[in-house]
């Protein structure tokens, strides 16, 4: 019970101090809109909004979670307020779950911004909501843990941003968000399959357009595996680098 009080208050604190701040809210709105507009402007033929939706949802979650978690954790480390959390009688796994839960929620909320915009432009009937929600949750979890991995690896806030982009931009092209993995050059495909977003985007494609190319159960198992491994790696890194 005592741990849950701490968990809830850490989540509320992060929500209030970081995630509900106007710049972060606008990031959640502007980013998906900008991506969608880019396709509208670039395309010579009418754009199928439903075709774009899996990619835009994935990107909104990826950019939202990794940016915010990596930056806020690095900021808290710099200001030493993160020490206050490490000094509290909370199990480290539990503490890191509390710290990441805010970013996961933020990522999930971000995911629904493009869904909302899409619903204004096209019919969203026939969407398979259960696998879609599962995918949104697991993409948010794995992206958040990627943000945590980045936060543990850097010391300065600007490094967090630069390092995040090092991972994020290649993922846009490698994870089948807008370019199907099957059409990528053969030598790049193994890279696609070691990135969790590939599996998340595939579930979204299945849920929205029924055109995923991997088995749904395989996608979920692999994403859960990525989430577990990334969490374990992050905790190991936190212990190694932050508890000297």
């Amino acid at each position: 019970m005592k741990s849950w009080i701490a968990f809830w208050n850490i989540l509320l604190k992060d929500m209030r101090n970081y995630y509900l701040k106007p710049p972060n809210i606008s990031w959640g709105l502007v980013f998906p809109v900008a991506w969608t507009l880019m396709f509208f402007l670039k395309s010579q033929t009418p754009v199928n909004v439903r075709e774009l939706l899996p990619g835009v949802i994935s990107l909104s979650i990826l950019f939202g979670t990794t940016s915010v978690l990596a930056v806020t954790l690095t900021f808290e480390r710099r200001s030493r307020s993160f020490e206050r959390l490490l000094l509290a009688p909370l199990d480290l796994n539990f503490l890191m779950l509390a710290k990441t839960s805010g970013a996961i929620l933020f990522g999930m909320v971000n995911a629904f911004v493009p869904v909302l915009f899409a619903s204004l432009m096209t019919s969203l009937s026939g969407l398979q909501w259960i696998p879609m929600l599962g995918a949104i949750f697991l993409i948010a979890v794995t992206s958040t843990l990627l943000g945590l991995f980045i936060a543990v690896s850097v010391k300065e806030v600007f490094e967090a941003q630069t390092f995040s982009n090092f991972f994020r931009f290649p993922m846009i092209f490698l994870c089948g968000l807008f370019i199907p993995v099957q059409t990528l050059p053969l030598f790049l495909r193994p890279l696609s399959y070691i990135l969790p977003l590939t599996y998340g985007a595939d579930i979204l494609k299945f849920s929205i357009n029924q055109n995923g190319h991997l088995a749904l159960s395989l996608n979920f198992v692999v994403l859960l595996g990525f989430a577990t491994v990334l969490f374990a790696l992050s905790i190991r890194n936190v212990k190694r680098k932050w508890i000297y």
């Binding site: 019970m1 005592k2 741990s3 009080i5 701490a6 809830w8 208050n9 850490i10 604190k13 206050r84 959390l85 509290a88 009688p89 909370l90």
Partner: peptide, 9 residues
């Protein structure tokens, strides 16, 4: 907030 970290109601 600090009190909540120690589980105080």
């Amino acid at each position: 907030f600090c009190a909540a970290l120690y589980g105080m109601k």
